[in-house]
Design a protein around this nucleic acid. Structure first.
Lengths: 120, 120
DNA sequence: TTGACATGCAACCAAATGGTTCTATATAAT
DNA sequence: ATTATATAGAACCATTTGGTTGCATGTCAA
């Protein structure tokens, strides 16, 4: 067992992977052992175990031993961290002054919300 | 989903990188050209350009030409997608029955079926 | 026209990521 | 006691990611 104190995974990193997001969704219903979780994926149990390790290090899930099983469950704390990060950006489209600035600096018919899309 | 652009990168992937998150924070204040953005980072302009491309493809930012500049700005749409994803998990710690289940299951198995369904 | 500025893009590279197989250990059941 | 179950982890591998340099293109200002 490597130390889990130092090796902390960034929560943004942790939710970047679609497999890990699906794992989180499975755990919304109830706590599950790794073998049960991995039965929902086309990959090996070892691969899922690595995903669970990353989720654990990001404090998105926690685990506890139940006999020979180890059950994983969601942990709210890092979800709150994500929510706070998002909240920071809400001022962009909720702040009237921001909207005003766009009008002033662009001196065109900007309505701030959805603009014509530019392709690359 | 309101995306009318081809979403090559998913938004979770896009916000996984700390540089890209910092870029988003810079753009909260006002729209900026790439040279101005990259002046805030120790990496090359090209590297920042790649990050901006990923953010664009995730519909987190958009851009428009202004003379010889290309200005980038935030786009709310994908932030909303993130918020919705988070909202899905809120019932985990806001739902009193979920909390109860954990208490009960500490002794043995009791299954309360109180979950809707949701898929990605 | 010339030069400086702002960006775009191809080619390349090291490290991180997401997967595999094989082996080992601990617990449960017969 | 033996066998089946549940997990842990090492070693390895291919692809993706995040960065670089060098060069090309477009625009503004003298």
């Amino acid at each position: 067992m490597t130390a889990n104190a130092i090796e902390t995974h960034d929560v943004f990193q942790a939710i970047a992977d679609p497999t890990r997001r699906k794992v989180l969704q499975l755990l919304v219903e109830k706590e599950l052992p790794i073998s049960e979780i991995s039965s929902h994926f086309p990959m090996s149990r070892t691969a899922v175990a690595k995903h669970l390790r990353i989720l654990s290090e990001a404090n998105l899930v926690s685990s506890r031993k139940m006999g020979r099983e180890k059950r994983y469950r969601l942990q709210p704390e890092s979800f709150n961290e994500l929510k706070q990060w998002l909240t920071y950006f809400e001022r962009f489209w909720e702040n009237k002054l921001s909207k005003l600035r766009y009008v002033v600096e662009n001196d065109d018919e900007v309505t701030l919300d959805i603009h014509p899309k530019h392709d690359e």
